[in-house]
Amino acid sequence: MSAPAEPAAPAARAAPPRGRTRSPRFDPRTAFLPLLSLLVFLGVWQLAAASGIWNETFVPYPATVWQAFLDVSTTSSDGVRGYQGYLLWEHLYMTLRRVLGGVVLGVAAGVLVGLLMGTIGWVRRVLEPWLTFLRALPPLAYFFLLVIWLGIDEAPKITLLALAAFPPAAVATTAAVAAAPVGLIEAARALGATRGQVVRDVIVPAALPETFTGIRLAVGIAYSSVVAAELFNGIPGIGGMVKDASNYNNTPVVLVGIAAIGISGLVIDALLRAVERRAVPWRGKA
């Protein structure tokens, strides 16, 4: 009598073809939780405004702020155009243009200085105290000096934003370069790589992830300084609009400006993260 046949082994799952990754599943919580937090915030805001504890001048209703948003975004029937003659998108465009100019200058200088400080010891010893000094200064501390030197046009605004973006980019790049893997550097030198080749092929790729983090911080700090940058002659500009509206206790317009700065900041940070994922795909994998 023949032995009973052994049970067949379960069929192995077909391995996914090489070079193809499974697309991430959509998690409803990624959209639901932020929406829920927004609804809770609006509910608390509505209750605080309706409680009567604070005057409506200080805590307006959400509907009042929404009406202010519509007013600054459109031209009214009696010909009033936006705020101080400019629509909200025009204020935002001027602010973003100033931020872009300042950030490009500040980040470019910061990354270059950080690369030098991270690779050349005496440069780091000379520049580090000055960099720490500048990083400790709030933007308003030197903005008025910039106004005296450069006037009240665009030059002091862009310079202020560049000075705000410079220290975080320089500090992050310096730390990233100094933390480059010594083993890889020594291996490249043993294979005959020159100093320039080591910097280009080993140090820079290793430092890019943290450098991008510094760039994101630089953009955030520059953007948080935009109201200070637009204190003088800041209209059109979101910071100028907020400052001018605060002079007249126009809280709804101030809140519209704050929301515009915050939301556009979120969009900019999301764009920077997308660029980082493309430029540094090896982050967290090496």
Rank of each mutant, 00 (worst) to 15 (best):
P16R: 15
R29H: 11
V123H: 04
M1D: 10
A176D: 00
V65D: 00
L115Y: 00
N250M: 05
R283C: 09
A3K: 12
W122F: 12
A164C: 15
A9C: 09
G85R: 02
P281F: 13
Y86L: 11
G240T: 00
I235A: 01
A178C: 09
T251K: 06
I148E: 02
V103M: 04
Y248I: 04
S264I: 08
L146N: 01
F143H: 05
I185C: 03
L160D: 01
K243T: 15
A188G: 10
D78K: 08
A175I: 08
W130C: 03
R189G: 00
A49L: 07
T95K: 06
L33N: 07
L163C: 10
D201V: 06
A259H: 02
V111Y: 04
A193T: 05
P156T: 02
L145H: 02
R216Q: 02
K285P: 09
I158P: 00
L36D: 06
A164M: 08
T211A: 00
I148D: 01
I238P: 09
A8V: 14
P209S: 02
G196A: 04
A218H: 12
Y83R: 07
G52A: 06
L134I: 13
F232A: 15
A180P: 01
V267A: 12
L271V: 12
R277G: 14
A12L: 12
G19H: 12
G102R: 06
V65W: 00
T213W: 01
L115M: 08
G284K: 07
L92D: 05
A175P: 02
Y61G: 04
A155T: 13
I53Q: 14
G151W: 14
A279F: 08
L116N: 04
V72Y: 04
L134G: 06
N233S: 15
L208T: 01
E6D: 02
L191V: 09
P156R: 02
L47Q: 02
P236Q: 11
G192W: 03
R273P: 00
Y61R: 13
A63E: 03
G85D: 10
F58L: 14
G118E: 06
A165Y: 13
A274C: 10
V40Y: 14
R195I: 06
V226Y: 00
L100M: 06
P129R: 08
I203V: 15
V199E: 11
S77N: 12
F143E: 07
P16D: 13
Y86R: 14
A162E: 01
N55D: 15
R97F: 11
P34R: 09
A179L: 06
D27C: 01
G192Q: 10
